[in-house]
Design a protein around this nucleic acid. Structure first.
Lengths: 250, 250
DNA sequence: ATAAACCTTGACGTAACGTCAGTGTCAAGT
DNA sequence: ACTTGACACTGACGTTACGTCAAGGTTTAT
């Protein structure tokens, strides 16, 4: 009719530590014998059964305690809340699984591709990433056709053009990293940088115009995603480039 | 070109605490300036990007560190391991969701049922639980037809019969709780208990026989699920009942 | 000069126990 | 009576990946 801590633990398939823990948390409070030993009775056995039932459904102990202690706590509501939270977790894990599968696939593909295939795959991926990150904003600012045209130019680039683009990017970034914070956006050195940025843009734009250039520059500081991209080169680059373009573009 | 801890934190969308933590864990170790301030350079920015990439895929930091530190650690293998573990988690959560939905459904149903419906639902549930817990073992020991017949008798019980069964169970349990550990299985009081257990069995068995009774009793100690069921009445009950039946059944 | 906004290290809190360590109690065998 | 072994007790540290103070030093701007 009564159990020691170990007997109950074995019966329920938990550890004695767990039972002591539940006591500390106010979930299951047994009587004590004269020697200080815990004594679990019938009602404690039933209660433990309840606790373990909810535990298996993934409830936190605090919640279980509330469910079991309070009269004004509806178990049905708690169950439905738990269901919602489990379904949310399910969705998040699903997202991770999709992402990781994608990564595995592209890594595996990368191993068997030749240089030309890698080059094309890289361009496709850049475009996709770019679309996801900036697509909406860019289309709103510059219009569907402009963006479509730029993407097409990028997708049709040869390896040679692409390498020149890379070199230019590298030079531009270096110049930006050195200039930001040390020289003024209105200085002649800044003009050189704006020129480089214009050349860079012309890899994507077939018809350059200064207004569009300035508009883009404004987005560099207004949109946090652009700002982050440029500030990754060095702190303050986004502001510097934006100001310089606003001043020098023509 | 270089960043303070806050600049990098803002750039990457993490807290400064996180960056300090990654340093403590050997994931990202910046240079120090003369005044003790951390200084993150380009390579650290790239490294952080890698770390956060893996973090988003749900990797533990220790694993991330191994992936990034060791040359003999294949990222593809790690990715696949992570995928397996995520899929396992997905399955477990799925199980929880199913279980919780079932619980919600039965709780909701319980609210709208009348007594008779509750009674039938209770019997059905008992049968289902019994089947899941002992079904296989029982069929192996007693044969398909025996079990089917017993289940049928149970399902066809009237509320009146059922109440008598409940009363008998209660009496039996009380007697067992008082006897186990205090009297011998070979004592005449134990004979009374075996008689009660026989009556209890006859609610399920149309043709009682002592051998089957003894066989069942043996399972009470041999099979941990039965043992657990009886030891829940009081510690030692499973052995006591098993021994008593072995001695007294006829 | 002083305040605001940084930076530093160190320490506690989180969830639900696992795992010692040190000590006390009880039943059984010698 | 003594030992042994199994059990009981409390207390404390470790686990994960940070969040959140606290106390004090540095830089920058006013």
């Amino acid at each position: 009719m009564t159990y020691t801590i170990k007997q109950l633990a074995d019966l329920a398939g938990v550890s004695t530590r767990t039972l002591r823990w539940y006591e500390r948390e106010g979930l299951l409070e047994p009587d004590r014998l004269d020697n200080g030993y815990r004594q679990y009775g019938r009602s404690e056995v039933d209660q433990l059964e309840q606790i373990l039932f909810y535990r298996e459904l993934g409830f936190e102990l605090k919640v279980i305690q509330q469910i079991m202690a309070a009269e004004d706590f509806d178990p049905l509501v708690a169950l439905e809340k738990q269901l919602v939270s489990l379904e949310l977790q399910q969705k998040q894990t699903e997202r991770l699984i999709v992402a990781i599968k994608k990564t595995i696939k592209s890594r595996k593909a990368g191993l068997t591709m030749n240089d030309n295939e890698k080059f094309e795959a890289f361009k496709r991926q850049s475009l996709a990433e770019n679309e996801e990150k900036y697509g909406e904003e860019m289309r709103a600012s510059f219009g569907e056709e402009q963006i479509a045209a730029a993407n097409k130019r990028y997708a049709n680039m040869t390896a040679e053009q692409f390498q020149r683009l890379e070199e230019l990017s590298e030079k531009l970034n270096t110049a930006l990293a050195e200039s930001a914070g040390s020289i003024s956006p209105t200085s002649p050195e800044a003009k050189e940088i704006v020129k480089m940025h214009k050349d860079w843009l012309c890899f994507f734009w077939s018809d350059y115009n200064a207004e569009a250039h300035k508009g883009l520059a404004r987005m560099y500081v207004d949109d946090p995603r652009f700002k982050q991209y440029y500030d990754k080169i060095a702190p303050g680059v986004a502001e510097f480039l934006s100001d310089a373009v606003a001043y020098w573009a023509e």
